[in-house]
Write a protein that binds this DNA or RNA. Structure first.
Lengths: 347, 347
DNA sequence: TGTTAGCACTCCCTTTTGACGAGTGCTAAT
DNA sequence: ATTAGCACTCGTCAAAAGGGAGTGCTAACA
C-alpha cells in the first residue's frame, strides 16, 4: 500500500488534533477539520489503511485513533516545516550572560522549563580534549599546599595537599616553574611516566609533592571530562496524565535526580543530528528505559572556543515538537551571540 | 476536661495504629489493641472527649479517628521515648569519608533517603562568620588574572579578572603581598573603605586591580555564606497517597528543586532544638507553605572546626518519627566521628 | 471505481442503585 | 463508671443501566 498525498494529509490532521486535545481523534472530526471535503466514511477507510501501515493505532475498538511512534516520527521528519512558517514569534526567552558557568546553566534550564512547561536538562560545555593550561602551588598553612589547576577553557579546579615536610617559598617557586614548563598544554594522555620520572628527579627531595600534584591534575581533568548536568522543571512531569502515573513518574523523577542516566541522552547526540544539532527521540527510541513513554528533544549548543554542550527537553510523546524545536533553535542562537567574542568563565 | 492517663493511652494507641496502617482507626480496634480491657463503647466515649479536646479528628461522620497536628505534637513530645527502648538496632547506615564536601553531602542525602524512604535535604556546613585566609593572584593569560580566594575552613573560590594593563610577575608578587598583609584574617564586614583606600594608594597605577579583587572577595564570601543545599529521594513523595495528589506533589517537588525555599527549614533550627539539635515540624508548623501536609524533621550536625550544617527529612505527617529521629541521631554520631580530628576539605 | 449514507455493533465512561460494613452516638441496663 | 444494644450515617464496592462516540460493513450513488 502506498502513502499517497491524501493519506498524509489525514495523518497530519490526526496528529495535529491529538497534540492539541490529547484525546483519540475520530473520523468525523477529521472530516470537518480538513479542507479535503470528504465524508467521515471515506476518512474511516483511509484511517483503516493508515492503521494497517502502522502510523496510527486504536486504544480500543470503537475509539478514535492516536499516532504511533512511527506516525510521530514521520510527522517530525517531514510534516512539521509547513506549520513552522505560519507560526507567530514566540515570546522571547531571556538568557543573560553570567559570570559563573553554573549559574548560566541553571538559568538556561529554568527559563527553558518555564517557557515550554516540560522538564529540561543541560550538560556543561566541554572542549573536545581538556588540556592543562596552568598550575599554581601556594603555601596556605603549615603542612598544607594549595594546588590550583587551570584547564583549557578557563575551568579551574582546586586541591589542598597535605605535606609532611616544611616547604619555603623559594622551593615552591621552583616547583611551580618546574611543573608549568613540563606540563603546560598537555592533555591527560600526553603525560607519561618518563616525563614524571624526569620531573621527580629534578624536584629532588620534594618528589613526593610532584606525585601528589600529578594525581590532582589527573583527577581534575577527569572530573572536568565527565558530565555535569543541571535540570529544571521536573515537577512539570505531573502535568501530563500519560506520565503522571505514580510508578512512571517516580522513575522519571528519579532519573532527573540521579542525573547520570541523562548522560546517555546528552552525549549521544554529539555530532549526529544533521546540521542543526537537534535530535528527537520518540518513545522507545530513547536509550533511557524510564523514558519509553516520553519524547526527548536535544540540541547541542556552542559557547565559543569549541566548547560544546547539550541541552534537552523531556515531555510526553504528545509534546509540541514544533514549539520545542523552535525554542531550542532560538536558544542556540542566543547562547552563540552571548559568548561570541570571548569566553570568560570560572567555577 | 483533663487529659488523664487512660485518655493518653488511648490517644497513643490511636496514633500508633494510624502510623502503621494509614487508615482511620475505630473504637473496636482500640478495644482489642490495648491492654486496658475496655469495651468499644467506653473507648467511643473517650474518643469523643479526645476529639473535643482537639487531639484527634474524624475525616467524616461514622469513620474512625485520625490524629490531628496537636495529637502528633503530643505524641512526639511526650509519648515516643517509651517505644524507643524496645526497638531493635536499625540497619547501620554507611557514610564514608569523602575528599570533596559536595560528594559527602550528596552521599548523606542519598543514604538517608534510601534508609527512610522519605525525601531528604542537607545544607553545607558553615563556620559562623567566614574569614579570609589567603589570596593569590596569578597571570594565566595575557590580560587575564586568576584570583584564588581561600576562606576559613579551606573553602576555595576562583575568579578570573580581565585587566587592560599588562602586568609583569614582579608587580603581581607585590600585589599578592599587599593584599595578604592587609586582608588576611578579616571577615567581610571588617574590610572598610579606609583600608581599601590605603591599599589602592600603595598599589599606585594598579589600583583598579585592587578594586576588582576586593569585589571578588566580597562575592566569594557572600556566596559561601548563603546556603548550598543538596536533596535526594524526591520521588519518595509519590509513595504516600496523602502527598501524591498532583497539585501538592508538584509544589513539593518544585520546592526540592528550587532549594532556596528549603533554606528556611535548614536555618531556623540553628540553636533552638534543645540539646540534641533535632527539631520536628508537624504539618502547619512548618514555615514552608507547600509542606503543610508534611512533617519535617531536622537535625544539626557538626564536622569539626565549628562547621555546622543542618540535615532534614520530609515525609507525610504519618511518618515514622521514631525511626527518623533515631536515624538522624545515628547520622550525627557518624559524622562527628568521621571528622573528629581534622577538617581537610576543598571544593 | 471512488465516495457516501445508513446502520448495527462495540466499547468506554458516567451515573445510578443497592448491598455491605465499619463506625458512631445515644440510651438504658448493670 | 461501664457496657450491651440499637438505630443511624456514610463511604466503598460492584453491578446495572444509559448514553455517546466511533467503528466496520454494506449497499447505493456519481
Amino acid at each position: 500500500m502506498e502513502l499517497d498525498d491524501r493519506k498524509k494529509k489525514i495523518l497530519q490532521a490526526v496528529i495535529r488534533n491529538y497534540l492539541e486535545t490529547g484525546e483519540p481523534v475520530g473520523s468525523r472530526t477529521i472530516s470537518k477539520y480538513t479542507d479535503l471535503n470528504l465524508s467521515s466514511a471515506t476518512i474511516r477507510n483511509e484511517m483503516a489503511d493508515l492503521e494497517e501501515m502502522g502510523y496510527i493505532l486504536q486504544p480500543h475498538t470503537s475509539a478514535g485513533r492516536i499516532p504511533s511512534d512511527k506516525g510521530y516520527r514521520l510527522y517530525v521528519d517531514t510534516m512539521m516545516e509547513e506549520k513552522e512558517r505560519e507560526v507567530v514569534e514566540m515570546k522571547e526567552m531571556l538568557v543573560e550572560r553570567q559570570d559563573k558557568m553554573e549559574t548560566l546553566l541553571k538559568q538556561v534550564a529554568r527559563v527553558l522549563a518555564q517557557n515550554t512547561q516540560y522538564a529540561t536538562m543541560i550538560s556543561a560545555p566541554q572542549a573536545k580534549r581538556s588540556k592543562l593550561k596552568f598550575i599554581q602551588l601556594s603555601r596556605v598553612d603549615a603542612g598544607q599546599i594549595l594546588a590550583v589547576i587551570v584547564i583549557e577553557g578557563n575551568v579551574i579546579k582546586n586541591n589542598i595537599l597535605a605535606v609532611d615536610e616544611e616547604i619555603n617559598d623559594e622551593t615552591l617557586l621552583k616547583l611551580n616553574i618546574l611543573l608549568n614548563t613540563h606540563l603546560n598544554g598537555l592533555s591527560i594522555d600526553e603525560i607519561n611516566l618518563a616525563m614524571i620520572a624526569v620531573m621527580k628527579q629534578q624536584a629532588g627531595i620534594h618528589s613526593a609533592i610532584v606525585s601528589e600534584v600529578i594525581d590532582a591534575v589527573a583527577e581534575a581533568i577527569r572530573a572536568e571530562e565527565d558530565l555535569e548536568i543541571y535540570t529544571s522543571g521536573t515537577n512539570n512531569i505531573l502535568r501530563y496524565p500519560e506520565l503522571a502515573d505514580h510508578q512512571k513518574a517516580s522513575e522519571l523523577i528519579n532519573a532527573f535526580e540521579e542525573k547520570q542516566l541523562l548522560g546517555t541522552l546528552l552525549q549521544d547526540s554529539g555530532g549526529e543530528g544533521e546540521n542543526t544539532g537537534i535530535q528527537v527521540y520518540i518513545g522507545s527510541e530513547s536509550p533511557v528505559q524510564s523514558m519509553r513513554d516520553c519524547s526527548v528533544v536535544t540540541a547541542t549548543y556552542e559557547l565559543g572556543g569549541g566548547m560544546k554542550g547539550t541541552v534537552g527537553i523531556v515531555g510526553p510523546k504528545r509534546m509540541d515538537y514544533d514549539k520545542v524545536i523552535r525554542t531550542l533553535r532560538s536558544l542556540q542562537v542566543q547562547l552563540d551571540e552571548l559568548y561570541k567574542d570571548d569566553e570568560k568563565q570560572d567555577n
